[in-house]
Every structure is written in structure tokens, then in C-alpha cells.
Write a protein that binds this DNA or RNA. Structure first.
Lengths: 251, 251
DNA sequence: CGGGACGTTGACCTGGATCAAAAATTGTGG
DNA sequence: CCACAATTTTTGATCCAGGTCAACGTCCCG
């Protein structure tokens, strides 16, 4: 599992990896497997653990009083969950499994102790909080300003980037365990409209989605749609090369 | 300045206030005044300080490559800014002044030291990070699922709630230093449409906005519009009374 | 009193929603 | 392995919330 962080502080990268290695040594002591649709955390219910996702897909989502649903954030392997609730247990969102997942578990108490004694772990925790916030900022932009195509392009490239990181994608195709309805719930669009945009992208030879397999046939064209949503760092990192493991990185 | 946090851990409230008092004792040593339109942090530029907003309005916003703008979050007195960048300096958003503001400044170094030695301050920092995240979650929901009226109602009630907290609103009216264009940039709407919705609300006798003065004439009606966007805790706290200082609390 | 924000309004257009129904796929139990 | 049910995808027809374009009113400030 590699973790990436923008250039300005190169030494941080090593420490993050070190922190992650430590977690990877300790946390397997307790783990859990989940099947799709299972719920890890119910809205409103406290929990006293943090989780490290090692395989599969999870989503933080909220159900409105009138039934509307919004997927706020999607978690992929390598992500840590539940950090925020180390401090404040109640939280109004639920976390559910999108695709069969494995996660490792650590009590809040132990996690706090670990963070206190191991600065690399502590840094790893902080980084996750910052990364979550970065993703949320990006997503607010995307929902507030992007049209349907921009949103979908952005999301697909984000998934691609993160899955490449996690070693779960090769080249330009990856497995996407979200139904089009769930995509819509994340994108703020209707299932019908998601479907239509996907058709347009397919007909343009840019991207196909078939039985959960996403194949990006024209990364550049897709990136062009996503471009306006990219932040300045993504933009400049794009400009000076990037090659393989570049790609957007948010959700 | 009072800080509020949901019930489950009553003792936390006191510690947060204690942390805030400490900051309020130390931070005035360095401060800065800003006029509207001034920029505190330019997108992409690092800074080595955290800020405590004591009066006025600030906004975190991003300008897209094609000129579109999105206001990601609005800061009101009592908020701490720049915590995230204690760890990671570069950030793609800029922070600008919406209404004449006063803020206190503390070096990252001193802040970290303070956090290390004073657990209440540390808690206050963590709380701010969590609070920011909560607001972002709520805002994602609002943008992803809410229509124009719901968004505006939600935002107005949020402002009202936070301003009451900060002692900057009395009863049901407050000063709103955002132009309708800026409102649109935050709400993901056009200036024209913002204007029309405000007219509708005015004609319905629910809310008027005149020269920066927002007057909510019918809080209940407005709350009804905002209701679906409210999270479960806001919902239940609404149900058992609330009276004065209730109200939504996000942006 | 003139110019530049900002607010307001109308006419019109369109991206995406809604409604409805068929096709394709996936899952299930026998 | 098949038959059947449930879920998911796809498509068409139609509608409407919100965007676009354009003009005019209003306020503010030098």
C-alpha cells in the first residue's frame, strides 16, 4: 500500500508510510469482513473504534427524512475511517459496504495511545483527516459548479487514480461496484441521467461501463472534461509529466 | 464567545470553552484587521500561521481554471482557520475577507507547542477540525440533494444559528455581507436565480433581505424548507424544544 | 452628477428530472 | 442446470427548475 502526498514536504511521505506500516503490523489483530449492503456504522450510533480498510469499498452516506440519499464520500483500501469520532462519538451519517470488504479494527483507546507514542502513526492519522477534508472540498466544488459530464469524468478519474495507488487497477480499467443508482446518489444526479451520460461517453468512445467493469478508452478526452474541476496542484502535476500514477485523486 | 457541541459528552463543552479562553488570552498578542475583498491566503501559497476569527466574515473559496468560482465554506467569529495546514502547507483554496474582520494570529510552531502542553487547547483544535468536516458533510448533502429553496433556507438558518452563537444576531435578523452573486457562488446557483428565490420568500412573507439586512419573519416556514437537509441530531434537538438558541448550525 | 457596483425583472432556453416501460443481468432455490 | 424473481440497466416521452441573455433600476461614492 503506497500513500501519496504532494511534493512540498518530501520527508513526510516516508513518515506516512512508516506510520502505515506500523498500523499494518498492529491492526490485523482484529479484523472484520463485510459483504455488500452490510452496515458498519449506523447513523446516530456511537462506536469506539477506528478502521483501516484493506480491501473492498465503503461509503459514508446519509438518508434524508424524506428518503433522498446522498453518498458523501467513498472509501477505498488504504483509507482510515472513524478517526474523527475518536473525539466525538455521535455522527449523523452511516457507513455501509459497497463491495465485499476487509477491515482492521483498533479501539479508540489503543489508537490514541499509539498516536501518543508513535509520531509517525500520529502523522498518518492527521494526514487522513486532512485528506478527507481535501476530498470534501473538491467534492463541494464538483457538486456546486460541475455539470453532469464534468462530475462523472471527475469521479471516474478519481477512482482510477486512487485504485491505481491501491494496486486495484491496471492500465485504464477497473472494477466499479456501484450501481448507477449509487453513482447518482454520490453525484447528485438521477439514475436515468447517469445512464444517459454514460451512454454519451460510450458513444464518444471515451469510456465504457459493463457489468461493473469501467474501461477508459480515452483518458485524455475524459481528463479534458474533468479539467475545470481540478485544483491547481493537480493541474500543475498534470502538466509536468505524471505518466503512470498521476491522475486526479479525490472523491 | 460560546461554543456549542451536541450532548453526548457534556464535560467536553467546558474543556472546549477552557481551550478557547486560553487561546483568547494568548493570541491577541498578534492580530490583523482585514477589509472586505482582501485576501488572507492566496491559493497555492503556504503560510505558517493559524488564525482565530474574532469579528467579521471570511470565506474559503476556489477559482476554477475557466473562471467559475465556488465558496466552499464561510467562517464566522469563533472559528479557527488554518489548522489543517499546520501539517501540510500547500492548499489549493484561497481565503478572502467578506466583511471587515479582525483575526488573531499564532505561529504553527507555537500552536503545536501549545497543543502539546495544554490538552484543552488541543481538544479545541481537534473540535474545529471535526466541526469543519461536519459542515462540509452537510454542505455536500445540501448541494447534492437540495433544490434552490432548500439550499437558501438551510444557509440562512445556518447563518442565523451561528450568528446567534456569536452574539452577532438578535432575534430573527442579522447582517449578511454577501452579495447575491457571492451567495450564488456558495449555493451553486446563479445570481439571477438566487434573486428570484429571495423574491419568492419575500412575497411569501417568510424572509426579507434588504441592504445586507436579513430579516426572518417566519422562522417556522423557513425551517420547513430546510428540514429535509437537517441531520438527525439537528432534527431531534429541534423536536425537544430549542426555543432561543436552537437553529441549524452549519455551512 | 456620473460611473460602477449591485439588485431586479422579463423572455427564452436547456440540462437534467420525472414518469413509464422494456430489456438485460443477477441472484435464488430446487 | 434451469426457472423465476428481483434488481439493475436502458430507452423514450415529456416536463420544469434553473440557466442564459439582456435590459433596466437603484444605490453608493467620489
Amino acid at each position: 500500500m503506497t500513500i501519496e502526498f504532494p511534493p512540498p514536504r518530501p520527508q513526510i511521505q516516508d513518515r506516512l508510510e512508516a506510520g502505515d506500516v506500523t498500523l499494518g503490523r498492529i491492526m490485523p489483530a482484529r479484523s472484520r469482513r463485510m459483504k455488500a449492503h452490510e452496515v458498519l456504522i449506523k447513523a446516530g450510533e456511537p462506536h469506539g473504534e477506528i478502521y483501516r480498510l484493506t480491501s473492498g469499498w465503503l461509503a459514508r452516506s446519509r438518508t434524508l427524512s424524506d428518503g433522498r440519499q446522498q453518498i458523501i464520500m467513498v472509501f477505498l483500501p488504504g483509507d482510515l475511517l472513524g478517526l474523527k469520532t475518536m473525539l466525538f462519538d455521535r455522527q449523523p451519517d452511516s457507513i455501509q459496504c459497497l463491495a465485499p470488504a476487509t477491515l482492521q479494527i483498533l479501539d479508540h483507546g489503543q489508537a490514541l495511545e499509539l498516536a501518543r507514542t508513535d509520531p509517525d502513526v500520529s502523522l498518518r492519522f492527521m494526514w487522513q483527516l486532512a485528506e478527507d477534508e481535501r476530498r470534501l472540498h473538491n467534492w463541494v466544488i464538483c457538486l456546486g459548479r460541475g455539470n453532469a459530464v464534468e462530475r462523472i469524468a471527475t469521479l471516474m478519474l478519481d477512482f482510477r487514480g486512487r485504485l491505481l495507488q491501491a494496486g486495484m487497477a491496471e492500465g485504464d480499467s477497473f472494477n466499479l461496484p456501484l450501481t448507477q443508482e449509487q453513482l447518482g446518489e454520490h453525484l447528485g444526479l438521477t439514475i436515468v441521467h447517469v445512464n444517459r451520460i454514460l451512454r454519451r461517453l460510450r458513444e464518444a468512445g471515451i469510456l465504457t461501463v459493463n457489468r461493473g467493469l469501467v474501461e477508459i478508452h480515452d483518458v485524455d478526452a475524459l481528463s479534458l472534461y474533468a479539467a475545470p474541476m481540478q485544483d491547481i496542484f493537480e493541474r500543475e502535476s498534470k502538466s509536468f509529466g505524471g505518466g503512470l500514477s498521476n491522475g486526479a485523486s479525490f472523491t
